[in-house]
């Protein structure tokens, strides 16, 4: 918390009426600024659910822990597969771990 948007990577999901992060945010928090880049309209209202981070097709959104709760700067990056997510986590001491699980069951 909050989502940190990489303005170089974000293309505002140009082809869509509504960008994916705006569609998926359960708090109606993500939207586009006047330059067509995603931003969170009220940072302290973010629930850290990471829905925007996972859905962003260009990997422009990173979820950050507020400093009052966690130290600078760990990372948790999802790589979305067709039916699985691979997560890469780096802690404040530089230790890197990888995790993978299936998030869709094939019919």
């Amino acid at each position: 918390m909050p989502p940190k948007v990489d303005l170089q990577k974000c293309d505002g999901c140009k082809a869509l009426d509504e960008p994916l992060c705006e569609q998926v945010c359960p708090g109606n928090l993500m939207t586009l600024n006047k330059d067509g880049k995603a931003y969170c309209r009220d940072l302290r209202h973010c629930w850290d659910c990471m829905s925007c981070t996972k859905v962003c097709p260009v990997g422009a959104i990173e979820t950050r822990i507020p400093y009052q709760i966690g130290y600078h700067k760990a990372k948790l990056i999802p790589m979305m597969g067709t039916n699985s997510i691979t997560w890469t986590c780096e802690d404040i001491n530089g230790n890197v771990s990888r995790y993978r699980y299936k998030n869709r069951v094939e019919d």
């Binding site: 918390m1 990471m50 822990i65 966690g70 700067k73 948790l76 404040i92 699980y101």
Partner: peptide
Amino acid sequence: CHNMLTDYLNERPSFVLYLASNGIN
């Protein structure tokens, strides 16, 4: 522990980030 953290990533992923932000294994 790795399996447990994988479960957390499925349930409340940013908790794993919280642990990493506090250097907790």
